[in-house]
Amino acid sequence: MRTLVMAAGLVAAGGAVWAEGVTLTLNTPGGAVLEGGNAVLWGPAAAELGYEVKIETSDNSLDALRLQVGANAVSTDIIVMSGYQSAIAANEGMLAPLDYNVIDAKDFVEGAATPYCIGIYGYAAVMAWNTKTYPDKAPASWADFWDTEAFPGRRAMRADAEAQVEMALLSQGVAPADLYTVLATEEGMQRAIDRIAELKPEIAVWWNSGAQHGQLMLDGEVDMTTGWNGRFQTAKANGGPVEFTYNQGILAYDCFAIPAASQHKEEAMKLINLMSAAKAQAALTGYVAYGPMNKAAFDTGLIAPEVAAVLPTSPQNSGSMIVQDITWWAANNDRIQQMFEDMMTQ
């Protein structure tokens, strides 16, 4: 038996030695992130290190990773996750700890370089509206989103509780500082779900992906929706009648993690280090309206002042937003999602 294990070990080691180039599989959302990542993140970083990068895309990387782990077929070496998903994945033992001796994180936004995941860009779940439907008075807060008399029109929300429950409570005037205290109790969670149920008759579509809510606004399918600022920025730039506000936005970030079952952890750390550098992070803002999590990116001179003005992590914008509490989400995700689903099918 021991010889067998040793033989297997030798074969594995031999494989690593003889592999000509390392191929890392990277799981990322599609859209502008994929385009920007190819151009300024993993594209140049892999070229510098002499690696090959194979891309997988998924709308929900936690699902993708769980399915891979559940099927015992983990093919991903680096995975782009949302911060709260990374906390859940880490709790479930699916992630490898990051080596901050290899990855330089000294200039990162506080709390954005966790033991298992390092921030890439910050984004906000915001409210967007059709400028043709509301030409005179634009909605300004979540209270307006729920106010169907002052702002009649078809709405869309995410078919998932994430960020939507925070918006529901904010619409009732809960102070940002009290948000997660209210959500800490079962009654608080039910209150948020009930508030969404109240608006349900007005919700024409429950969206599942960023691409979908961007398209819903471009097509004029709905008049108001929740969604991510980057997609609305793109829709606006494409000439769509779309406007959004950072006021009461829910600020979250996506981050790079390494699955515990990856065969190329060392190489993945090196690649992540290059992708986290201030210059790479600054360059990404040319592709997505998401804010760099490496604060030094704003000092590189690569981000023009007018671009910084629309980025959610720039000092002038991040003040009007609420930073999403990843710990609350990691602890309560299953419960709140169950309540949300029951509400959806009622």
Partner: peptide, 25 residues
């Protein structure tokens, strides 16, 4: 899933969500 826009919840969608949201095989 596409044409219902979340307003028509059928059993296959719940099965998919049980797996994806809760990883509950």
């Amino acid at each position: 899933a596409i044409l219902g826009g979340g307003n028509v919840q059928v059993i296959s969608m719940r099965i998919a969500r049980s797996l994806s949201n809760f990883s509950n095989w």
